[in-house]
Amino acid sequence: MILKGENIIKQYHHDGGLISALDHVSFTVGKGDFVTVTGPSGSGKSTLLLSLFGLIRLTSGTVIFDGKRIDDISDRHLADIRKNSVGYILQSFALIPYLTTIQNVMIPLALRKIPAKEQSKRASEILDYVGLTDRMHHLPRELSAGQQQRVAIARSIVHRPQIIMADEPTGNLDPTLSLEILDFLQKINRENKITIMMVTHSPVAAEYGTMKLHLKEGKIIKT
């Protein structure tokens, strides 16, 4: 087991009332699993993904990561966990527009204060791995959508995380590119034994999961 959620509740105040985005969600993810989280819009998929490592604070519930409880630790410690053990991939790629491909990939290493030479070496290797060696010094706007998402993937794995949290990584891509990215994520999962938790709308993408969670109105209705 690498990640476990127990009775996770996330409630928002809205128009004087309480809305439950996550309602007593419990699950267990094993090391090396490829978890897909599906469900209709507003079912709480992204909220679940972003709340597990503190990007959204939970109302209640327990989160255990790598054997340690992390739902009650400080922002600083959660940031340290994200920095060292988690990689994120978002639908909108979330690249920094004024940095080149290789500079974007080096950011997680810079945050860990890895020496510049080592950063450059590791970023180059990862960009070679995702097939972007010839685009290392391009700005994001000079890349296609598929290439930008591959940069985001490279950035999410460059610091060798234990788990990748992907929020609709193919949402902005056409079907062909989507399959390319999904195949790539599967390759990372299989070759590097990195656990992946991926939120998706797509039934095709959901089929890549070795474990499937389906959410509806904040509750897991199928695993």
């Binding site: 990007l55 922002d75 600083r76 940031a79 060292n84 994120y88 920094i96 945050l111 860990r112 950035r155």
Partner: peptide, 16 residues
């Protein structure tokens, strides 16, 4: 703002 969010997501602390 978005860039700040991305950096925080990647583990940058408030102090950074």
């Amino acid at each position: 703002k978005r860039e700040i969010g991305v950096l925080r997501m990647m583990g940058a602390g408030r102090s950074t």
